[in-house]
Design a protein around this nucleic acid. Structure first.
Lengths: 91, 91
DNA sequence: CCAATATATCGAAACATTTCAATATTTAAA
DNA sequence: TTTAAATATTGAAATGTTTCGATATATTGG
């Protein structure tokens, strides 16, 4: 992971609503539907869409179409790469 | 670490100049002087001061006064806590 | 104490992000 | 194939961030 990618992921992680989204993966199964995310986020639909886009653009979430719904899974590989970058900072 | 703290650290990590600062710790010894940071950052002095403040406010850097200079060390404990939060996201 | 050096703060311009209403697009069901 | 549901895009207001010149504060050496 290069520093530009690291920066982008950090930015994606620097918003309370997006943290709520990511934490939902901890509590629930390994995938979440767009509508479930929308329900847990006291925000208008375009705002939810915007936040999901940030997370997808940072590769933290992997989107998958399922009929007319959208399903997201957490990209653990990217999280691991991000963690590796952080560990490298320590020398 | 709570999510508010996680958010703040993520924001501190989401800027290219601040990443350059943190990466300098990898290359050099375990502490850096304000002036060394300033020298490696093609930015005006108030901007450097601003970025260092973000990093200190997020507890990523620990400042220490040494006469009329300022010395910073990387806070590895906070980095570890941040990493632990990330790992917890994966379940 | 005075002058010089190191760092911080202020205030404003430039830029980026968040939010939502309105609207568009896609897809499945009727 | 029309309609309803799910999601995305646009455009604009509100807010936050970055940057720097000017200036303030602290510290040390002379």
């Amino acid at each position: 992971m290069d520093s530009k990618k690291f920066e982008k992921i950090s930015r994606a992680l620097s918003d309370p609503n997006r943290i709520v989204i990511l934490e939902k993966f901890k509590k629930t199964k390994d995938c979440l539907y767009c509508a479930e995310i929308h329900d847990s986020l006291d925000l208008a639909q375009p705002s939810v869409s915007h936040h999901l886009k940030q997370l997808v653009d940072a590769d933290l979430l992997l989107p998958e179409k399922e009929g007319r719904n959208l399903k997201y899974t957490l990209n653990e590989t990217v999280l691991d790469d991000y963690i590796a970058f952080l560990k490298a900072l320590k020398g």
